[in-house]
Amino acid sequence: MALSKSQLKTRIINEMKAQGANETGSFSWVEKMAEAISNAVVDEIQANAQVPVTGGSSAGTYKVE
């Protein structure tokens, strides 16, 4: 499964709403905050995550993309 900034943003918004946050209104930061968090999380994972494969012909360590 590929990482998706937009899907993660939607998940974050839904979780924030479940905690009582209001995503509407001129002073709401829910959308902007969710987008910033999702962008940072996906970028960090794609830049630094590695997956070890310990056996078989594909043994090695691979970068997450």
Rank of each mutant, 00 (worst) to 15 (best):
D43W: 09
Q46E: 15
S6Y: 06
G56M: 13
Q50P: 05
V53S: 03
Q7R: 09
E44S: 15
N48L: 12
I12G: 06
T10M: 10
K9S: 01
G60N: 10
I12V: 08
N14F: 09
F27Q: 10
K63N: 10
S57A: 14
A40P: 15
A18Y: 00
Y62M: 10
N22D: 12
V41F: 09
G20P: 01
P52M: 11
A36V: 07
T61F: 15
N39E: 11
K17Y: 02
K9P: 03
S6T: 12
I45W: 09
A2E: 10
K17I: 05
T61I: 13
V51R: 05
K63V: 07
K17C: 09
G25C: 04
A34I: 04
K17V: 07
K32H: 06
V42W: 08
E15G: 12
D43Q: 09
F27Y: 13
G55V: 11
K5C: 07
P52T: 11
M16A: 12
A21L: 00
G25S: 05
P52N: 13
W29I: 08
A34F: 01
G25N: 06
A21F: 00
N39G: 05
Q50M: 11
I13T: 02
Q19K: 03
I37V: 12
K5F: 09
I37F: 05
S26Y: 03
N14V: 08
A59H: 15
S28I: 06
L8A: 01
S4T: 02
S6G: 05
V30L: 01
N39W: 06
M1R: 07
A47F: 12
A18I: 02
I12N: 01
E23G: 05
V64Q: 11
N39Y: 12
A59R: 14
T61H: 14
V42E: 03
S38R: 10
Q7H: 08
E35G: 09
I45K: 03
N22S: 08
A36I: 04
I37C: 07
M33W: 00
K63L: 10
S38W: 13
T61S: 13
Q7I: 04
Q19P: 00
S4H: 02
V42C: 14
G55S: 15
I12C: 04
K17E: 04
I45R: 03
N48Q: 13
G20K: 00
M33R: 01
Q46T: 15
K9R: 03
A59P: 15
R11K: 12
E35L: 02
I13Q: 02
G25I: 07
A36Y: 10
S28G: 11
E44P: 14
S4M: 02
S26P: 09
A49R: 07
D43C: 06
W29F: 14
D43V: 06
N22W: 03
K9M: 01
Q19N: 04
S4A: 02
V30Y: 01
Y62H: 13
V51A: 12
I12W: 01
A34L: 06
